[in-house]
Simulated assay, not measured.
Amino acid sequence: MSDTLDLLADPIDLTTALVDVRSVSGEEAEIADLVERSLHLHAPHLEITRSGNSVLARTNLGRERRVVLAGHLDTVPINRNFPSRREGDVLHGCGTVDMKGGDAVMLAIAALSENARHDLTFVFYDCEEIEAERNGLTRIQRESEDWLRGDLAIVCEPSNGTVEAGCQGTLRIEIRTSGKRAHTARAWMGVNAIHSLGEALRRLEAYVPRQPEIDGCQYHEGLQAVKISGGVAGNVVPDEAVLTVNHRFAPDRSAEQAEQHLREVFEGFDVTVTDSAAGALPGLGAPAAQELVVAAGGTPVAKLGWTDVARFAALGMPAVNFGPGDPTLAHTQEEHVPVQQITGCFDVLKRFLLS
């Protein structure tokens, strides 16, 4: 492998080169070094710095607006899908979708950004695929928050080349019931904690999720039981049971409002929040966001999941997902991307940022 990437090459070739560098979460040093060297060589006009295995670069042109482009360098563990292979107009391999196609587009734009229409910041970060505390954006926000601020953030996660606005929030709760142990041969002497979850499950089955429209994008909430645990032996009435529920909520609700909603839904039960992350409003009314939508030439849609756009929204910025690849293929052995999506995303961002 070359010591540097040719950032002026076709973004498809750039994607291939990035995919062929192993970068499982926590092992991004090699790819971060490669990205840093390549930016110094091909984009000397950029201010470049390093934060752990994250590489940050930006223009300082004095433009009216700043657009932040972000992409993670890590992948999930390789699953017999390394190195890349090309079959016709489809590129296969770990990271082709999530999200080295997006990283390649960012690098290609960075190389051409000397006279960009907007000031640009490029954030190539580590450890996105694992716990939030190790996520490179967590460290960057803690140590160098100014590098994340701008008038619009574009997270180049896979979106099938469509602008996906904002993102939904996520909340996990545990509903805990208690009973009394007894031998199952004398079950009437005990109280079955698992049976006590029946009413909570009935409420879940009858629940009708909201589908609010925000900035012209329709979100679809969800409330699902994802785990039940309880019982100590095959001949004992269980005295404790736990039902885990995941709520995906639209960004017009805060995490606190979503929690209050679930406490109302499960009134009378012992509810404990175990995980919570706010969503991100689309913010499509912002001038920079409107320009991107026009450049993309399509209708933006709601992001029906949680992504790092929420981190940028928490800083008061509109944020969208826009990148090549089908997100349903992320983390699968069959991960692949149509190469025309890589080219298409590059062309859109080139129109928006450079023309």
Rank of each mutant, 00 (worst) to 15 (best):
D151V: 12
P11Y: 02
D13F: 01
L281V: 04
I228T: 14
I31Q: 11
Q340D: 09
D215A: 01
L292R: 04
D270M: 02
G279A: 11
L171Y: 14
A200Q: 07
V242T: 14
F352L: 03
D10K: 05
I12A: 01
I194N: 03
T96Q: 09
R253W: 00
E164R: 06
S23K: 03
A132T: 15
G62Y: 03
H183P: 12
R172L: 03
C167F: 08
N160H: 12
H118K: 04
G222F: 02
A302R: 15
A187D: 10
P212A: 03
P209R: 15
S25Y: 10
E240L: 11
L91Y: 03
F352R: 02
E205A: 11
A233I: 03
T16Y: 01
I48E: 14
D239Y: 01
R117P: 07
G268C: 04
V309D: 12
L304P: 10
G150K: 02
C127T: 15
Y125R: 13
Q257A: 02
H220W: 09
Q218G: 07
P287I: 00
P83G: 00
V226W: 03
S159P: 11
A241G: 10
P44N: 05
D74W: 15
M317H: 00
H220Y: 11
R22L: 00
D151K: 08
C345K: 00
G88N: 14
D126L: 12
G150V: 03
E164K: 10
T177I: 01
Y207A: 13
L281P: 14
V320M: 02
K303V: 13
D33H: 05
D308T: 00
V236Y: 11
A185T: 15
D103N: 12
A182N: 05
D215L: 00
A108W: 03
T162Y: 05
L7V: 10
G216Q: 04
L5E: 02
V67C: 08
L18K: 02
I12D: 05
F249Q: 09
T96A: 01
R117L: 06
T162R: 10
H261W: 01
R37Q: 14
L281N: 08
A225K: 04
D275V: 06
F346Y: 09
S54D: 04
Q218A: 02
A132C: 13
R85H: 12
L8N: 09
Y207M: 07
Q141H: 15
G150D: 02
D215P: 11
H118L: 05
L91N: 10
E164M: 00
G62E: 08
V348M: 00
G161C: 10
L107D: 08
S229N: 14
N60Q: 15
L292K: 06
E174F: 09
R311N: 08
G222R: 12
A233C: 08
T343Q: 10
M317F: 00
P251K: 00
I194G: 04
V24K: 11
V68Q: 06
Q211Y: 07
N321W: 11
R203I: 05
Q141L: 15
I175G: 07
V301C: 12
R181P: 14
R22P: 04
L41A: 13
L204S: 09
E133Q: 13
E47S: 14
A29T: 08
G283H: 08
N79K: 12
Q340W: 10
A255T: 11
N160C: 13
T75Y: 07
G279L: 09
E47F: 07
V236G: 12
L18Y: 11
